[in-house]
Design a protein around this nucleic acid. Structure first.
Lengths: 344, 344
DNA sequence: CTGAAAGCGCTTACAG
DNA sequence: CTGAAAGCGCTTACAG
């Protein structure tokens, strides 16, 4: 079924398509009665101008490409939700892409494809959270020739806008608190650095806190989930790791889970063994509250980040050049009790 | 920064744009050496053909509009994830829209806007989950003139494809099991029918099971979360409701939570009061497993639904007319222990 | 195997 | 206030 176009409207209304275009775009210089007539025809024929034709002719775009690791993590779904609400209100469309993998190579390959797709779509802006941001990506993104907003850890060598939080500072905050509580044999649930650069930053934060307290890292207390290639499911991998290595480990006095999903897996394992270890979670999760688990965590507010994205996006779409290239967040330690021992 | 177009490539390669177009689209009738030459230029100039120009000229589209209530519910995020993976692999773009509200009027207004946006974008297909599907929506959707796939409860009077599950049957299954266990004073956490049609279907299922057992419904055991307009957050609303009306209610022998999010809130409230009531959840949730809560539920697999969407979408995009307009799912009762009393 | 030309559905100076 | 014409960046018969 063929869509009706501006030509049919023009013919039906007995005017040129220039005029139709003017009324569609609310140009002032249109005779009132002409306008009303055209509007009536548009209404009657259910005509909706094609964004694609319009974008082509104006060489602009009303969609923003959003690339995220996944959408199941509440952190990301919250961001999307915020951005979405504004997008719909502002007549912008969101082209959503997710990579959905923990494998660095897979992710990079997908991201490359995603950038290419956004490119072909001639998106007007791009929002990107990449776990492994590289010089090559920066180059690919630059070729888009559109404003890009990077979310996540700070990238030193970039020309794009950034909404950042310091992974290092977050880990530092959590670790320092545990040390302050007097714990010394602290275990870490993490992935290999090679699997995710974020963990190396987190470990730096841990290290900084230890240095302050004159404590040295005990390699035996680093529990790498990556060692068990069980699943792409973070929680499950952490669960297995905790079950095998932590639950019966008398050494461990407390655990710092370096991911909110890992925290979930850890809790499950501890619960099964009925071991009420003190734990702290890197990142909060709605579910912690829903289930009243009293999980102490280092929080970065995805709502706030979402709002920031909305704001930046709006301005950037208007063609504004922003002064501040980088917006940084202050993470916060939220005490809920689990730092003295998790309850189930 | 102006994007380079097919014209620049043609000029640079010393051929016409027709030829460039042919090599882009892998037409067979191109001289091998011409092709290689053009390819080289394309590579060198980082040329990516514009989807928007191409779509306009071919009067086709490579994006699918997806409209969902929200993206935080695992049921929906799973579906998107499945669809996404396939979309990226097939060079299709997903235009994502969510309504994010529990208010019927708000949702309807947003959906109208969403359909209009998809229309202007000239999307090639649409995937839609609507909590309040109406005749008017059907009409609006028809005007799109594209294949539409409805997910959710069965709509009797529609020409579109449907991927359905029976809410009635699901509720029936859960209720029947509780009755079979011998419970008679069964409480329900639900919303008002007026707030969401799904609940009326669910209550029909409940009724059918009761009829079979010759039991009559006790209105005092219907706990409507909608009565507390606390929050758009299902879990929180259910938590408050349960806390006020269920936790200290000696009458109640078991609870059927008519939403997975409600189940979460209920568990939280029960846990605070340390009341180990038997409960069943309508719908599963990943988190139940992650936390090892042993929640018995009626499950409909979002993975399977996601795969179905992918398959239908692929065929429908190819212009296929499918025989089967409706695909129905069999819900399943998954026993995990909470039907005898929730553990925390 | 290749190019000129028309067309996809809009917008936008330019005349009038 | 309005229309004819060119252009946005592609594709696709139609000739050759």
């Amino acid at each position: 079924m063929k869509k009706i176009s501006i030509n049919e409207i023009a013919k039906e209304a007995g005017v040129s398509k220039s005029t139709v275009s003017r009324v569609i775009n609310n140009h002032p210089n249109v005779n009132d009665i002409t306008r009303r007539n055209v509007l009536e025809v548009i209404e009657r024929l259910h005509y909706k101008p094609s964004d694609i034709a319009r974008n082509l002719s104006k060489s602009m775009s009303n969609d923003v490409a959003v690339s995220l690791p996944n959408i199941k993590n509440p952190f990301f779904s919250t961001i999307i939700t915020e951005v979405m609400a504004d997008a719909i209100a502002s007549d912008m469309n969101i082209l959503l892409y997710t990579t959905d993998s923990l494998n660095e190579d897979v992710v990079k390959k997908k991201e490359q494809k995603i950038i290419e797709m956004a490119n072909k779509k001639r998106a007007g802006a791009m929002l990107l959270y990449s776990s492994w941001y590289t010089k090559e990506m920066e180059e690919e993104l630059k070729k888009l020739g559109i404003p890009v907003i990077l979310i996540g850890k700070r990238v030193v060598d970039t020309d794009f806008y950034q909404i950042v939080y310091s992974e290092e500072k977050m880990a530092y905050l959590g670790m320092k608190y545990l040390l302050k509580q007097g714990y010394r044999k602290i275990g870490f649930i993490k992935w290999h650095e090679s699997e995710d650069w974020r963990y190396s930053h987190r470990m730096q934060g841990v290290q900084r806190a230890m240095d302050e307290y004159g404590v040295t890292l005990d390699k035996d207390l680093l529990f790498n989930c990556g060692d068990y290639k069980i699943s792409d499911d973070h929680a499950k991998a952490a669960y297995v790791t905790a079950k095998r290595e932590i639950v019966d480990n008398e050494e461990v006095e407390a655990v710092f889970a370096l991911t909110n999903t890992a925290t979930l897996g850890l809790i499950k394992a501890l619960k099964e063994a009925d071991r009420k270890l003190p734990i702290i979670s890197f990142d909060d999760a709605q579910i912690f509250e829903d289930l009243d688990l009293g999980v102490t965590c280092i929080e970065r507010s995805s709502e706030v980040i979402g709002e920031l994205c909305v704001e930046l996006l709006a301005r950037v779409f208007r063609g504004e050049q922003l002064e501040e290239k980088v917006v940084e967040f202050e993470p916060q330690l939220v005490l809920r009790g689990s730092e003295k021992g998790i309850k189930f």
